[in-house]
């Protein structure tokens, strides 16, 4: 008989013991370890997924921030460009205004200078004319300028027409104050006496005469009484000289002014091109 029943029973018991031992020492620990590892891997994968999601969120947020920043930058740039453009226009206006002010100021200064020059020229011309006339008279006619002025004045007084003479007499006679003779130079005693004599002769009565020196008369002589005046001076000659000098200066200024507007248009075109 090949089957030994004792052995069969013993082997059944052995097998059951082996099942229990292997379950205790092999299957359970191995499966536990595998489960633990799977859980660990699953946790790591979940963690990685969470991190990935977080990274994605952060990436999205960063991208959004970048876009916002770009938008803001463009807006700011536009604002700055507008501000710069407005500032530029304002500055250009201010510069134009300043330029026109300066030009006006320059014109005023030029005018003043011309006026001063005229004054100086007149003064100089007067002095020169006097000096030349005086010297010429001494050299050619052996007389002084003052003598000739006085003589011419007295001639004019005498040569007044009848209407004027009557009018003048009426005024001079009505005058309470003495008649006033004003001269640019000091009269000599002879000249004073001659004047007094001539006036009395012309008026036909004795009238007190007062003499006064007035340098602003410009080498002239005048008779003043009761608001009326009879005078002779070289002021009219000087005025005509002044007029001719003025014309000369105006001609020169005209040439300069013709050049200046051209320069102005050039500067305008440069400003536009900028």
């Amino acid at each position: 008989m090949l089957i030994d029943w004792f052995t069969v029973v013993a082997q059944i018991i052995n097998f059951l013991i082996l099942v229990w031992l292997l379950k205790r020492f092999l299957y359970k620990p191995i499966l536990t370890a595998i489960d633990a590892r799977e859980q660990r891997i699953a946790a790591k994968l979940a963690d990685a997924d969470a991190k990935k999601m977080e990274a994605q969120k952060e990436r999205d947020a960063f991208q959004q921030k970048n876009e916002d920043f770009d938008k803001q930058r463009i807006e700011r740039m536009n604002q700055v460009a507008e501000a710069v453009s407005a500032e530029r226009a304002q500055l250009l206006d201010a510069a134009r205004q300043e330029s026109s002010d300066l030009r006006a100021q320059l014109q005023v200064t030029l005018k003043n200078e011309r006026h001063n020059l005229n004054e100086a020229l007149s003064h100089r011309a007067r002095e020169e004319v006097f000096a030349i006339a005086r010297k010429t008279l001494i050299d050619l006619a052996d007389t002084t300028l003052e003598d000739r002025v006085t003589a011419v004045f007295l001639d004019r007084l005498r040569e007044l027409d009848d209407g004027e003479m009557a009018d003048l007499k009426l005024v001079f006679k009505a005058s309470v104050d003495p008649l006033l003779i004003r001269t640019a130079f000091t009269l000599s005693t002879e000249q004073c006496a001659a004047i007094e004599t001539t006036i009395n002769g012309v008026l036909g009565e004795e009238k007190a005469v007062k003499f006064e020196t007035a340098p602003d008369l410009i080498s002239g002589i005048e008779l003043v009484a009761n608001g009326r005046k009879v005078a002779w001076s070289i002021a009219s000659y000087l005025a005509s000289l002044e007029e001719s000098i003025d014309e000369l200066l105006k001609d020169r200024d005209g040439i300069q002014l013709e050049v200046k507007p051209k320069a102005k248009t050039e500067s305008d075109s440069q400003a536009k091109s900028e």
Binding site: I3, D4, T7, V8, V9, A10, Q11, I12, F15
Partner: peptide, 12 residues
């Protein structure tokens, strides 16, 4: 190789 063992396993 023993029929007792294989029988025991088969009985199990």
């Amino acid at each position: 190789g023993s029929l007792s063992t294989t029988a025991a396993l088969a009985i199990c």
